[in-house]
């Protein structure tokens, strides 16, 4: 499958990336090369191979349902670009 301009614009939009229109061709080429490289995997016969759920042979890492102290609110909000009323403040979201 060949990567198109539309794909690049769509993916950038999904990732909320602003890209310059005259850069799109460059990304089509660069991303295209990466995908082409990865496409080699599709040449392997995986008929009898189970899908990988995790790369490590580890399972059932669980914790007990026991509360631990949370962060102080001041600390929780410390890195927020904007905060007010004890909350993270963001530009108004209209549904």
């Amino acid at each position: 499958m060949k990567l198109t301009k539309e794909d690049v614009i769509y993916v950038a939009d999904l990732a909320r990336l602003e890209i310059d229109e005259n850069e799109v061709d460059k990304y089509v080429e660069q991303l295209g090369k990466i995908l082409e490289y990865e496409d080699q995997l599709n040449q392997i016969d995986t008929t009898d191979v189970l899908p990988t759920a995790h790369v490590l042979p580890v399972k059932n890492v669980l914790r007990e349902d026991v509360p631990v102290p949370s962060l102080d609110r001041e600390k929780a909000l410390m890195n927020a670009p904007s905060q007010d009323k004890g909350c993270f403040k963001v530009p108004k979201v209209i549904e």
Partner: peptide, 22 residues
Amino acid sequence: TKTKIFCGCSTAFGAEENTQTC
């Protein structure tokens, strides 16, 4: 449950905003 799904923060309802986070 007493705690959240992936951390030990309390799930109690009605706490002050952003006092049950980590």
